[in-house]
């Protein structure tokens, strides 16, 4: 029995994905606010023992594991019956997923199979009248709505980096409960995975992100951004307009339909700051914009701004930053 069940995920290189600890942090707070009787984690995959221990250290009182070679890669057909079996066994009031490639695909189908519904991409979770009040972004980031799922269990997907994990505590204990549920027969089958080779820092983990937009005027300019990023230990992002033009890979797109980032520093170069772009970077602690249009929307979110042609600003900025970083 647990009141809140978190569907955890493994990181591509092994170990738990950061979102798993964030979800367990949110679940622990919600469980306390709802007066529930515990937090559990569900893990589906092939080699989960280490991740299960990490989930316990991150706050799970119980970890349900379903391990099978056929579950090594996510696929809705294979995962659905297993996920449904775990929910049945854990009987939670609330089921949390990350708003990840898996979560956004699996959560709505699972919620439907359970006779319930899902609220997607929560920014904030609160207890109210015994239910989870979900604040989420809508209208391309122009508005927020507060919703509750009125059917049970309440399924919610949660945006990465929106929730704080618990302080690490290796002394936490919990039990691992193996679940014997047969993977579903895969109708849709994964043939091949093409991993975008992101040289350097991963976008979602970066402390600094340097992003370019359509105003760069040409794909070659991204090489300049990459050099600056390398000096700063930063990742390179792009607006959708730049990605749609084929100037930069879609895996680096920041925004509503791309990656959501919330670094300490976000540098937006020749990006207008449309709401759908800000939906992906508006949570950054500090935004700096270089744009030749003084009225560009991006400045409404920026701590520092330069109004000028980026081509004239960038060489000197690169040199100065290089010098500062070398001095440090």
């Amino acid at each position: 029995m647990a009141s809140i069940l978190v569907f955890g995920e493994s990181a591509p290189g092994g170990g738990p994905a950061a979102i798993t600890a964030e979800l367990l942090g949110a679940a622990t707070r919600l469980n306390a606010a709802l007066g529930g009787d515990g937090v559990a984690c569900a893990l589906i995959g092939a080699e989960l023992d280490a991740v299960a221990q990490a989930a316990i250290a991150a706050g799970a009182g119980a970890v349900y594991t379903a391990q099978d070679a056929a579950l090594a890669q996510y696929g809705a057909d294979a995962y659905l019956p297993v996920a449904a079996a775990i929910v049945e066994q854990a009987a939670p009031a609330v089921v949390l997923f990350g708003q990840t490639s898996m979560g956004r695909d699996l959560a709505p189908r699972l919620a439907t199979r359970l006779g319930s519904a899902v609220a997607m991409d929560a920014l904030e979770l609160e207890a109210g009248d015994g239910r989870v009040r979900v604040t989420r972004s809508c209208y391309g980031g122009n508005a927020r709505q507060v919703v509750t799922v009125e059917s049970d269990p309440q399924v919610v997907t949660v945006r990465a980096k929106s929730q704080d994990p618990l302080p690490e505590d290796a002394g936490r204990t919990g039990e691992v409960v193996p679940v014997a549920a047969a993977p579903g027969a895969a109708r849709a089958r994964l043939l091949e995975k093409e991993t975008a080779d992101s040289a350097g820092v991963r976008l979602e983990d970066a402390g600094i992100v340097v992003s370019g937009g359509r105003g760069l005027g040409a794909p070659e300019a991204f090489a300049d951004l990459e050099r600056i990023a390398a000096d700063l230990g930063a990742a390179v992002g792009a607006s959708r307009a730049a990605c749609d033009l084929g100037w930069y890979p879609p895996s680096q797109q920041v925004g509503l339909t791309g990656t959501v980032v919330s670094p300490e520093l976000y540098v937006a170069i020749a990006i207008s700051g449309a709401s759908q772009h800000m939906a992906g970077c508006g949570g950054s602690k500090n935004i700096v914009a270089i744009n030749k249009d003084p009225d560009a929307n991006i400045f409404r979110y920026s701590r520092f701004g330069i109004v000028d042609d980026y081509k004239k600003v960038l060489p000197q900025l690169e040199a100065e930053l290089k010098r500062l970083v070398a001095d440090a």
Partner: peptide, 10 residues
């Protein structure tokens, strides 16, 4: 997907 593309047949 977050880190690239999956080729899937259905």
């Amino acid at each position: 997907v977050a880190d690239g593309f999956e080729s899937i047949s259905t």
